[in-house]
Amino acid sequence: MAMVEGTARSRVIRHALIMIGLATIAFPVYMALVTSTHEAATMVRGVVPLLPGTELVDTYSRVLATGIPTFGSMSVLAMLGNSLVMALGIAIGKIVISLLSAYAIVFFRFPLRTLWFWMIFATLMLPVEVRIVPTFQVVADLGLLNSYGGLVVPLLASATATFLFRQFFLTIPDELVEAARVDGAGPMRFFFDIILPLSRTNIAALFVIMFAYGWNQYLWPLIVTSDPAYTTIMIGIQRALSGSDELTPWNLVMAMTILAMLPPLAVVLGMQRWFVKGLVDSEK
């Protein structure tokens, strides 16, 4: 009986801790949502309401259609579109390049292939912030400033994804490779018919991670674009802040923040099962 009571008590404590953690994470999001449903003057009074207001439809329709006065006439919908193009381009590009590079390193025999892999892996020590100046110079020389190519191409290479795919490919038994060779499957057929289906959970997990990485980019889009037409949502939120609480339309800024959270949240929820399976399931 004492053991049962102890188990029940520990279960209650665990659930209580989980609920406290969820509340801690969700409360700022809730306050941002509440703020977006009130008039801007409400925030200036110094009393933050805890219950939603009546301006939700007006605030979000205004932000999506006409933007924020302190930023300009560009709509948030256009900023979300730019961020979506960048995030999808980075996620898909990273996965394609990493798949091909890992496939070549594992299944092809060429001189110094191990050295080439470790050279790729060593780039983990050089994040984009460290190589920002030479990368910007290359993009400028290629004429990719103020373009989607300039936003996406410099961030396509991924040593992390290449390493993860390589480690998974090394678990594929040699008998499967030999059976494919006996059946007359060439390198590309083996890649598309066998490697890709086996890698689908890994691809899904990496897509979620890389999409969030691309969506949250701030420094690189800030440097490589000066044309407002290519403004991403992260830059838009920062530029919407006037620097003064009295002048900043906090209801509109919080509405932008909530809208900026929706696409990555939708990707995580939509691919949650594949994401978890790709990270923890040993049976790929």
Results as ranks from 00 to 15, higher is better:
residue 3 M to T: 12
residue 7 T to N: 15
residue 8 A to W: 09
residue 14 R to S: 15
residue 21 G to C: 02
residue 23 A to V: 09
residue 26 A to S: 05
residue 27 F to T: 14
residue 28 P to V: 00
residue 31 M to C: 13
residue 32 A to E: 04
residue 37 T to W: 10
residue 38 H to I: 07
residue 38 H to R: 09
residue 39 E to K: 08
residue 42 T to P: 06
residue 43 M to L: 11
residue 52 P to C: 07
residue 56 L to Y: 09
residue 56 L to Q: 14
residue 58 D to A: 15
residue 59 T to F: 01
residue 61 S to R: 05
residue 64 L to T: 02
residue 67 G to Y: 06
residue 72 G to D: 04
residue 72 G to F: 02
residue 80 L to I: 12
residue 88 L to Y: 03
residue 89 G to W: 13
residue 91 A to T: 08
residue 100 L to M: 12
residue 104 A to G: 06
residue 104 A to W: 04
residue 106 V to R: 00
residue 109 R to S: 14
residue 109 R to T: 13
residue 110 F to V: 04
residue 110 F to K: 10
residue 110 F to W: 12
residue 113 R to G: 05
residue 116 W to M: 11
residue 119 M to L: 11
residue 121 F to C: 06
residue 122 A to N: 04
residue 130 V to L: 12
residue 131 R to M: 12
residue 134 P to M: 06
residue 135 T to D: 07
residue 137 Q to L: 07
residue 146 N to G: 07
residue 152 V to K: 01
residue 152 V to F: 01
residue 152 V to P: 07
residue 159 A to Q: 07
residue 160 T to H: 15
residue 166 R to F: 03
residue 172 I to E: 00
residue 173 P to V: 03
residue 177 V to M: 12
residue 181 R to P: 10
residue 182 V to I: 14
residue 184 G to M: 08
residue 186 G to I: 04
residue 187 P to C: 04
residue 187 P to Y: 01
residue 191 F to Y: 04
residue 192 F to D: 02
residue 195 I to W: 01
residue 199 S to N: 00
residue 202 N to D: 09
residue 203 I to W: 05
residue 207 F to N: 09
residue 209 I to M: 12
residue 216 N to H: 13
residue 217 Q to N: 14
residue 219 L to G: 09
residue 222 L to K: 15
residue 224 V to H: 06
residue 225 T to Y: 06
residue 228 P to N: 07
residue 230 Y to M: 09
residue 231 T to C: 06
residue 232 T to W: 02
residue 234 M to I: 08
residue 234 M to G: 15
residue 236 G to C: 14
residue 237 I to G: 00
residue 239 R to C: 03
residue 241 L to Y: 05
residue 242 S to V: 15
residue 246 E to T: 15
residue 248 T to W: 03
residue 249 P to I: 01
residue 251 N to S: 13
residue 261 M to G: 10
residue 264 P to F: 10
residue 265 L to P: 10
residue 273 R to C: 05
residue 279 L to P: 11
residue 280 V to F: 00
residue 280 V to Q: 09
residue 282 S to I: 08
